[in-house]
Design a protein around this nucleic acid. Sequence first.
DNA 1: TATAAAACTTAGCGCAAGCTAAGTTTGTGT
DNA 2: ACACAAACTTAGCTTGCGCTAAGTTTTATA
Lengths: 154, 154
Amino acid sequence: MSPPDDRAEEARRHAERFQRVRAAHQTEVAEDYVELIAQLIDETGEARVVDLAGWLGVTNATVNNTIQRLQRDGLVTTKPYRSIFLTDAGRDLAVESRKRHDIVREFLMALGVDAETADIDAEGIEHHVSDATLEAFATYLARSTNTATGRRRS
Amino acid sequence: MSPPDDRAEEARRHAERFQRVRAAHQTEVAEDYVELIAQLIDETGEARVVDLAGWLGVTNATVNNTIQRLQRDGLVTTKPYRSIFLTDAGRDLAVESRKRHDIVREFLMALGVDAETADIDAEGIEHHVSDATLEAFATYLARSTNTATGRRRS
DNA sequence: TATAAAACTTAGCGCAAGCTAAGTTTGTGT
DNA sequence: ACACAAACTTAGCTTGCGCTAAGTTTTATA
Ligand SMILES: [Mn+2]
Ligand SMILES: [Mn+2]
Ligand SMILES: [Mn+2]
Ligand SMILES: [Mn+2]
């Protein structure tokens, strides 16, 4: 059973999965940054380097480097010594990331995970959840919300 | 409401979460490698560089570099031009990673995610699931297995 | 308004993780 | 046994993403 060809095919698919994970890692920092930038702008009026550094737990210099990459990639704009703004693409990515992040966090809590743990785990998990899985999370969430509200499923 | 002190405290905790995610990323490659090495040894008798490269979707040279790091970190042993072995620490990490990986994958499938998507997402999610969350996944899994077997919850 | 503090940038570094190209060793088949 | 193929290693490169230290600009305050 399982001739070498099947085995090779299995390896190929396995490798494909890893390539997807590696790709996700490349967009991860961008997602976290734009999400945070959007939040800071909404809540405080502006996103400054020093704030991002404080909220992310990295140095100002690191934020600067990253912002340059994000600018290169068309997600933010900024002028020397001025605060950071999102481009349309950046704002879109921020909204999508935020939505995803919230669903993951709420899903974990609905499953019975405590809030602090849900916050921690969601920060990492959010970047590895496909649309299909997010859909499944949202469905579970809707059902458990209904249940909690007193409704019952058929 | 929410004086600056509360805000600063919120930022501190937010930063802490990111530091945890960054830490998880540093162990991620090691986990995937030892898990795969264990599997190859179990299924084929040995783990060779060329096989790892094929299953991971990277070049032989990359595998070599990584194996050197893993050896430096005490997870594997290997001699020039020979195949790769796990140390006790490596084997322990492999077993734990495999268990975690399986629970995540089965949990996603139990939630209604198709097998291929579950395989892809689990490959990334597994590294960001705390013990508490894994516990919650396992609990859900046990419950849904019972349900599928015909039993009903009280 | 001058000075000090805070914020921001730049320079220069390190490590992880990928790559290609070239060389070495091992294993196979005739 | 030899030749060739396959496997493995090495050298040298790139990018991402962290850091510290030093310099520049802006903002606050005395
Ligand atoms: Mn997020
Ligand atoms: Mn995140
Ligand atoms: Mn795994
Ligand atoms: Mn993985």
